[in-house]
């Protein structure tokens, strides 16, 4: 069997890498879950004219700030 284990530098790189992506994910989900509409339907009311067969599409200016 080979000898040795996790070196100090390897442990630091692993901890920092895994820790940073974990913190980023937790922070993102915290931000989302604390939004009032996090589990509700996406978008809510659709803008006038943006849905339905045969209805006119939204104007070019509709969210194009």
């Amino acid at each position: 069997m080979q000898n040795g284990g996790l070196t100090g530098f390897a442990a630091v790189f692993m901890a920092v890498s895994m820790g940073s992506v974990t913190i980023l994910m937790v922070w993102c989900f915290y931000r989302i879950l604390t939004q009032p509409d996090s589990s509700g339907p996406v978008g809510g009311d659709r803008p006038e004219g943006a849905g339905g067969e045969g209805t006119p599409g939204p104007s070019r200016e509709a969210g194009n700030l």
Binding site: I32, Q35, D37, G40, P41, V42, G51, G52, E53, G57
Partner: peptide
């Protein structure tokens, strides 16, 4: 049509 379909929830979308 495309415009009649939407995601149900934000968590579902993510």
């Amino acid at each position: 049509t495309h415009q009649q379909e939407q995601w149900g929830t934000r968590i579902g979308l993510i």
